[in-house]
Design a protein around this nucleic acid. Structure first.
Length: 840
RNA sequence: GCGAAAGUGGCGGAAUUGGCAGACGCGCUGGACUUAGGAUCCAGUGGCCUUAGCCGGCCGUGUGGGUUCGAGUCCCACCUUUCGCACCA
């Protein structure tokens, strides 16, 4: 019988499901292991690029099961979000219906890939029994002052008609739709993530099993910097303006001050300015610019006409307004040290402001300002012309000047963060309603916990215009104030979907609990998640929010851990060639003709570009055809074999057949072994010494490589083993091959396992253990170098004494040609398998 | 500009502690089987030279130096690419 995956795969998928092999009782004892793939947004059809993520997780899950671990592997749906609403507007289908339809299709797809999830724990964030706990969480944070409503300059996406978190703005554009983001002053809901900035930063040091890259990205995003707040007296105001600087050691070189145009003291400072109107006009223009526009326009400033006193030089320094000073960071005011800061330098040059050198190289050579500021950041620089800190290297100077600043009451050493509060409100329908009321009498009133959930009404019209459809739903908007019983208006903003995904991993262990967010005792047993798997695109947003919310849950006394994910793995994306026409539109591969190895559509030459697989680029490989032709096992093996899993990998339709041939060979060996013919019984005998050795080497290799996420080389080791087995089949070794191959190709291995007459699943069999003694080679090949050149090879028994190796080497005829009797052997090295003979 | 990672055949990629570079697979070449092959199986496959053939030799892991008996691997300098951040004082 030839290998026919389409016949065997559905059968085994059904059997696993019927046996409920992945369902786990979280209260039963066992060596727990919580595996988790980031729950997906149910956008519809999955392609082979998505498959990589889940196949990888499933292979690992099956491996841990065979190791005897009580492994939990749940799956759910990050089911709220904009695409559902856009589908509703475009196609008239309700977001819920669209979402549930996609979920159904994706579940089928997971099954066809042979992926095992514990579906008894499935959750969908768009269901009231899930999102009511979002609302409950919101109320707890509100009580603690960690959720608040505030007016702030926010990012507004004119395309999606909603505000965005800072994290969702990429290069000044909406991360989702690419529209240019505008700055607007709006009342919005925030989570006070900044209150946890220090803990989120410090916690990164405890994450030993996270990729360094992700930790670095988070660290940069949190942006902790040490420095000092210093007050500069402003005689005109009669008070001081406070600046933040990370380089207080350069304060003797602060020759002017720059305020953000939004700074609160600006109005007073320019009140009597002769050109007040012009300056105000400029300020308005700057305020309306996005960060991107500000940067593109270059540095611009206006002189206020007023001065401040440098507290160390006692000189009067001019106060300027500058578009490059950010209102949200530090105090919105800076002391400018043009000699030692590139931005200050450019500004000073542009407006002819004075510069003063106060740090020089440790060598003492004099400096001359040319086109750049000198930014000594370490011991390579020493303070000069700086009174009490002159002569000190930069780090020491910073330390000393801060203590002087504090002694003299001018300010203090401070830590500032780049991180800003998390804007969580969205003016969209398909999300968790924020459980707040606006009472005409009592103002802002939280919805009492016993009234949760605030259910999202389903009967709303989707026009795509005039903002949030929820606001037009009278029955939803009108409410009764729980405090005074009078009329209240319900908050119609919904929560950012990142709120949903910042605690879902806790819900999975007790997903049907109707009385609480989760059962703390069970959560404390199963969490933190032992192995979290997902794309690098979540390195900042999701992972930072999840770490933040986990800490708030900890502080609420609900859990005892602070970091939600012990190990993190980010798989790389799958790429494929796409084709663009002259206008830059993507062309369907079906319309591409190849002429002289170049892609054409009709007479038009197209350009080929390798990019991430995506629907819009028309370069997706749908798994259905692939599975119909080669089977899911082939896709699984190919996907894992293609490249190291953390790396980007280029999909190759030809490459797939390699995996298919490999499985075909494994199948054929099984055929030989299971034939009843007595003539072939000889094949079922004991494995030869060479096969036994290879078997143990392979067990060792596959085990250690799976543990290190080196799936590509784990599979190559299995290919080698099967090549050896093909020459000398043996049942014992073959069963081991099936077990080692199972995590990667579960269906074919189950089928062959059964054909050999075994009871039960391979999945539930015990992972083989390698015997180090049997792994060793009998002989060692010695390569001999004479004067650094390879001159011959000798086989010696493994573990031979040095003298025996030496004798064997010189008994070899070939080597003798290169060594004359007069030569003196100076050194002999026997590390593993290479002898190096050096002659004079 | 700042930060991080990576450069190995035609391609994806292997190479515990420095120890036979190119495992495994794709592709390619030749052969077998075929009405057919874009199916399957077998063999070969880094480059150059040498040989009737076996054998043999030289070069080779981005570039240039260094350490070492020995370097893809360690050290120094440089080049290139990718990714992340980007007026954060």
């Amino acid at each position: 019988m030839p290998y026919s995956p389409t016949e065997i795969e559905p059968k085994w998928q059904q059997r696993w499901a019927d046996a409920g092999v992945a369902e786990i009782d979280v209260t039963a004892p066992g060596d727990k292991l919580y595996m988790l793939n980031m729950f997906p947004y149910p956008s519809g059809d999955l392609h082979v690029g998505h498959g990589r993520n889940y196949i990888l997780g499933d292979a690992l899950y099956r491996y841990f099961r065979m190791q005897g671990r009580a492994a939990l592997n749940p799956m759910g749906w990050d089911a709220f979000g904009l695409p559902a609403e856009n589908a509703a507007i475009k196609r008239g289908i309700h977001p819920r219906q669209w979402t549930l339809g996609n979920i159904g299709r994706m579940k089928e797809q997971f099954a066809r890939w042979g992926i095992l999830y514990d579906w008894s724990k499935e959750i969908a964030s768009c269901e009231p029994d899930y999102y009511r706990w979002n609302q409950w969480l919101f109320l707890q944070l509100y009580k603690k002052g960690l959720a608040y409503r505030g007016k702030a300059p926010v990012n507004w996406c004119p395309q999606d008609q909603t505000v965005l978190a800072n994290e969702q703005v990429v290069e000044g554009r909406c991360e989702r739709c690419g529209a240019l983001v505008e700055q607007r002053d709006l009342e919005q809901w925030f989570f006070k993530i900044t209150a946890y900035a220090d803990r989120l930063d410090a916690g990164l040091d405890t994450l030993e099993h996270w990729p360094e890259k992700v930790k670095l990205m988070q660290r940069n995003w949190i942006g902790r910097s040490l420095g000092a707040d210093v007050e500069f007296q402003v005689p005109f105001l009669g008070t001081a303006i406070r600046v933040f600087t990370t380089r207080p050691d350069t304060i003797f070189g602060a020759t002017f001050m720059v305020l953000a145009p939004e700074h609160p003291d600006v109005a007073k400072l320019i009140a009597d300015h002769p050109d007040r109107a012009a300056i105000e006009e400029w300020i308005t223009a700057v305020r309306n610019q996005s960060n991107l526009e500000r940067q593109e326009k270059g540095k611009e400033g206006r002189f206020t006409g007023k001065t401040a006193i440098n507290p160390f030089t006692n000189e009067e320094i001019p106060i300027w307004l500058g578009n490059f000073v950010l209102p949200q960071y530090g105090t919105g005011a800076i002391m400018s040290v043009p000699a030692h800061d590139q931005r200050d330098f450019e500004f000073a040059k542009q407006y002819g402001l004075p510069m003063k050198i106060v740090v020089g190289p440790a060598s003492g050579e004099p400096l001359e300002l040319a086109d750049e500021a000198f930014t000594f950041k370490d011991e390579s620089g020493v303070s000069v012309d700086s009174g009490p800190i002159s002569g000190l290297p930069v780090p020491k100077a910073i330390e000393k000047i801060i203590s002087i600043i504090e002694e003299r009451g001018l300010g203090k050493g401070t830590v500032r963060y780049r991180l800003r509060d998390w804007l969580i409100s969205r003016q969209r329908y398909w999300g968790t309603p924020i459980p707040m009321l606006y009472c005409e009498k009592d103002g802002l009133v939280p919805v009492p916990e016993e009234q949760l959930p605030v259910t999202l009404p389903l009967d709303v019209p989707f026009t795509g215009r005039e903002g949030n459809p929820l606001a037009k739903h009278e029955a939803f908007v009108n409410a009764i104030c729980p405090q005074c019983g009078g009329h209240a208006r319900r908050e119609t903003d919904t929560m950012d979907t990142f709120v949903d995904s910042s605690w879902y991993f806790c819900r999975f262990v007790t997903p049907r609990d109707e009385t609480q967010m989760f059962d703390s005792r069970v959560v404390d047993r199963w969490l933190p998640v032992d192995q979290y798997i997902g794309g690098i695109e979540h390195a900042i947003l999701h992972l930072l929010y999840a770490r933040f919310i986990t800490r708030t849950l900890h502080d609420l006394g609900l859990i005892t851990f602070e970091e939600p994910f012990t190990r993190l793995f980010n798989q790389g994306v799958i790429t494929k060639e796409g084709y663009k026409d002259a206008r830059g539109s993507w062309v369907s591969p079906a319309d591409v003709q190849w002429r002289e190895e170049k892609p054409y559509r009709g007479e038009e030459l197209l350009t080929a570009e390798v990019t991430k697989m995506s629907k819009s680029r028309l370069n997706v490989v749908p798994p259905d055809e692939l599975i119909a032709r080669y089977g899911a096992d082939t896709e699984r093996v190919y996907t894992l074999f293609i490249a190291p899993p953390e790396k980007e990998a280029a999909w190759s339709d030809e490459g797939v057949v390699g995996a298919y041939r490999f499985l075909g060979r494994v199948w054929n060996i099984g055929e030989k072994l299971s034939v009843k013919d007595a003539v072939l019984q000889g094949l079922k005998g004991e494995p030869t010494r060479a096969v036994t050795r290879k078997m143990h080497q392979t067990i060792h290799a596959v085990t250690s490589r799976i543990e290190r996420f080196e799936f590509n080389t784990a599979i190559s080791a299995l290919m080698e083993f099967s090549n050896v087995l093909g020459e000398a089949p043996s049942r014992e070794a073959y069963e081991v091959l099936l077990q080692l191959l199972h995590p990667f190709a579960p269906h074919i291995t189950e089928e062959l396992w059964e054909a050999l007459g075994n009871d039960g699943f391979v999945l539930t069999s015990k992972w083989p253990v390698a015997d180090p003694e049997l792994m060793k080679e009998d002989t060692v090949t010695i390569a001999v170098q004479v004067n650094g050149k390879l001159r011959g090879q000798v086989d010696v028994p493994a573990g031979a004494a040095e003298n025996a190796v030496y004798d064997a080497v010189f008994a070899n005829e070939k080597i003798q040609q290169w060594v004359s009797g007069k030569d003196i052997v100076k050194k002999i090295y026997v590390p593993n398998k290479l002898v190096n003979v050096v002659v004079k």
